[in-house]
Design a protein around this nucleic acid. Structure first.
Length: 229
DNA sequence: CCAGACGTTGTT
DNA sequence: GTCTGG
DNA sequence: CCAGACGTTGTT
DNA sequence: GTCTGG
């Protein structure tokens, strides 16, 4: 979920330029929906520019025939991301940060699935390590700027013991001081990227049991993250 | 050579 | 696009 | 990820 | 059980 304003994110991630329209805050972001990402573009003279952009959550590799494939590419395992055909090109060339206030996980309980909201102890914004792709929509004309669809995915890693009781995987979360390294376009070697991933520390998150309303994508309001149970 | 896959999560 | 399997 | 739909024939 | 929509 992400309810922070563009301005707050731009300040926090030292963004130079907002590209695209502002998105409504969301407390229930579903796969295939549009989220914000932070990327670095390199000018011809080598000057990096940090941009805040919109991207569809669910990576579409260049060879995807339609948008449906993206709904199954919402996560990428960090252990194999530099090797898998669907992700390796993006892993070396198109890394991004996906900002979020927190995220949800469901645990199977005796009476159905119990949702949890996971967030930083100090409620600071999380910087998910992500990848992005530009997918040429075959149904849109070459000369239409909308032809190039920005898509993204979020890396995952095994959960630490502290969170393993909720879920055995967690997103890869960058400490703020590693955001620059992650976005750095000069890191283009897969072994370098793997080393970078290995250096990312385990996230320290707090799980909060919340109400079941979050399960339905129709519900989207701040009350979704309130404690329940 | 061509055809077909390319992914993760969770559950069993 | 690129790799694997046949 | 979860929630919700998934189908045809025949009858009104 | 499996797919689609959000």
């Amino acid at each position: 979920m992400s309810a922070q304003s563009d301005g707050q994110l731009q300040l926090l991630f030292e963004v130079d330029e907002r590209v695209g329209e502002q998105l409504a805050p969301s407390w229930n972001v579903a796969p295939t929906q549009t989220v914000r990402i932070i990327v670095e573009e390199t000018a011809e003279d080598g000057t990096p520019t940090r941009q805040l952009r919109n991207a569809r959550w669910g990576l579409l590799p260049v060879w995807a025939k339609d948008r449906k494939m993206g709904s199954r590419m919402i996560n990428a395992r960090s252990e194999t991301v530099t090797e898998k055909p669907a992700f390796r090109a993006a892993a070396t060339k198109r890394r991004c940060v996906v900002p979020a206030d927190g995220y949800y996980e469901w645990q199977q309980g005796e009476r159905g699935k119990v949702p949890y909201y996971l967030h930083a102890e100090d409620a600071s914004t999380l910087a998910f390590a992500g990848l992005y792709e530009l997918w040429p929509d075959p149904e849109i004309a070459e000369d239409d700027p909308a032809k190039w669809v920005w898509t993204c995915t979020i890396l995952t890693r095994p959960a630490s013991d502290a969170l393993g009781h909720v879920h055995d995987r967690t997103p890869v979360i960058l400490p703020y001081e590693m955001v620059g390294d992650w976005l750095d376009k000069s890191t283009r070697d897969k072994s370098e990227v793997a080393t970078l991933i290995d250096a990312i520390p385990e996230p320290n998150l707090v799980p909060r049991q919340i109400g079941r309303a979050v399960g339905s994508p129709r519900n989207n309001h701040p009350g979704l993250i309130e404690a329940a149970g």
